[in-house]
């Protein structure tokens, strides 16, 4: 099992395949791909286990449960993201990329990377709630259907990242 990891796919080829998957998704289901929505479902489901009365009494969770009458986790995005986990795992398997390690730039301490990943994730999760979707659900899928909000969010994600990149260069360079 010490084979070298294979090269990544040519980016333009990967892009075309990604576009075809997205197009198929829209044609079959009438909606785009997503990721952060499933995280929202996971959070609501967890809170519902820990503090069910809190879910019943708090507006955000009330709105969520009203929008999902079939059940918190019986949701298209939840199944899709379970698929993403399987698909990525299979891809890692065929390309010898399965590991168990913390990836970080050489000059960066492990603890810095851990804190960075958590804080970055928290910001992304928060922002995705505002924008009603993340890079997949709002930016990519929004772009495919020409949604004004989706395309605006896309420019803000990438524009924002460029804007802030300088201040966090020590985390990467």
């Amino acid at each position: 099992m010490s084979e070298k990891p294979k090269n990544f796919m040519n980016p333009y080829l990967a892009g075309i395949l990604l576009g075809l998957v997205l197009l198929a998704t829209i044609y079959i289901t009438g909606r785009g791909l997503g990721a952060s929505g499933a995280m929202k479902s996971a959070v609501v489901a967890s809170v519902n286990v820990v503090a069910p009365s809190h879910v019943q009494n708090t507006k955000f969770y009330q709105e969520y449960t009203q929008e999902h009458p079939d059940g918190i986790l019986k949701n298209w995005l939840v199944f899709e993201v379970i698929g993403v986990v399987i698909g990525a795992f299979l891809s890692g398997l065929v390309s010898n990329r399965l590991t168990f390690k913390l990836e970080r730039p050489e000059k960066v301490k492990s603890m810095t990377r851990i804190v960075g990943a958590f804080v970055g994730g928290a910001f992304f999760g928060l922002g995705a709630q505002f924008a009603r979707g993340c890079t997949s659900g709002a930016a990519l899928s929004g772009m495919a259907v020409l949604s004004t909000g989706g395309i605006l969010t896309m420019f803000c994600i990438f524009g924002g990242a460029y804007m802030f990149a300088y201040f966090f260069r020590k985390l990467w360079l």
Binding site: L33, G34, A35, S36, M39, V81, V84, V85, A88, G116, A117, F118, V119, G120, G121, A122, F123, F124, G125, L126, G127, A128, Q129, F130, A131, R132, C134, T135, S136, A138, A139, G149, G150, L152, T153, M154, F155, C156, I157, F158, G159, G160, A161, Y162, M163, F164, A165, F168, L171, W172
Partner: peptide
Amino acid sequence: AIVGGLIMGLGFVIGGFCPGTSV
């Protein structure tokens, strides 16, 4: 859409992933 996008941009450069890619 704007505020959420900018917050996500901040998260992107700090965390190095977006939700789909982190999964």
